[in-house]
């Protein structure tokens, strides 16, 4: 009994009190800051080194929906045209907003990327139950989504929870590039959720196929038919990235 009390005392309070203003350590690779004016002529080193084909040159652009945040482009670029900041709020409502061009500053991205709709706020603002489906995910995104509900991040305090049955869910959270073998089950789960429902794509794999985009074992028809409401980039996204994007989406 004494040990239990001692343990409880040492455990203390682990919850991050202010999720919306929490910062991540500076080594974390978050929002990329791009300055094309630093590029030398005919240089395409960053594009060549990118494992996910996330970089376009002329003009220099980086697609957060494909980026695995490995940092290889940053380390290969001698002039510093691409630098990853530690800003973790990367969620966006549209696929286009995920493409970061030269000169885009984080504050501007953060204030416009996630759009809040009145009706979403009204229906889901105080309670949002989500069904997560891993469709070929490597367990990276899955671990971080599970961590969003742990004692540190404690997403449940905002009324956002993951539930077991799609019948209890207000939306679906998809991870993984959608393997052929999971495509039917994903569609079944999606159809089992009653309207209105929201669709959240988590991680580079779900958003664009990630580093598996060339694989013949994928079946991404789901995304041709279903419109995504919220994109959470990362490989895997930090729990703070997920929680903050969802909070903003439901008007918090």
């Amino acid at each position: 009994m004494f040990d239990l009390l001692k343990l409880r005392f040492r455990h203390g309070c682990q919850a991050i009190r202010d999720i919306q203003h929490a910062e991540v350590i500076s080594t974390y690779r978050g929002f990329p800051v791009i300055d094309e004016s630093k590029c030398s002529d005919n240089c395409s080193e960053c594009k060549n080194v990118c494992p996910a084909s996330a970089i376009d040159i002329n003009p220099l652009r980086l697609d957060l929906g494909k980026c695995t945040f490995c940092g290889e482009c940053e380390s290969v670029c001698k002039s510093g045209a691409i630098k990853f900041s530690s800003q973790h709020k990367l969620g966006a409502s549209s696929r286009e907003s995920l493409i970061i061009s030269s000169g885009k500053i984080f504050e501007e991205y953060d204030s416009t990327a996630v759009q809040t709709k009145k009706e979403i706020e009204k229906v889901f603002g105080r309670s949002l139950k989500l069904r997560q489906v891993s469709a070929g995910g490597c367990n990276g995104c899955e671990l971080e989504l599970a961590a969003a509900s742990n004692v540190n991040f404690d997403m449940g305090r905002f009324g956002i929870d993951f539930v077991a049955s799609p019948r209890h869910a207000d939306g679906i959270v998809i991870t993984g590039p959608i393997s052929k073998n999971m495509a039917p089950a994903l569609m079944d789960a999606f159809k089992s959720i009653s309207e209105p429902k929201i669709i959240i794509a988590v991680g580079a794999c779900a958003i664009s196929g990630g580093i598996f985009y060339e694989s013949l074992e994928l079946n991404r028809i789901f995304f041709n038919e279903i419109k995504v409401d919220l994109y959470i980039p990362g490989c895997p996204p930090h729990p703070l990235t997920f929680i903050n994007a969802v909070l903003k989406f439901i008007g918090k």
């Binding site: 070929g136 995910g137 490597c138 393997s179 073998n181 999971m182 580093i211 060339e214 694989s215």
Partner: peptide, 19 residues
């Protein structure tokens, strides 16, 4: 269910060590 064809991708991109 999670089969993504990783071993094939290793050969398809064999000249790209970073990938």
């Amino acid at each position: 269910f999670q089969h993504r064809g990783i071993e094939n991708l290793f050969l398809k991109n064999k000249s790209n060590p970073i990938y």
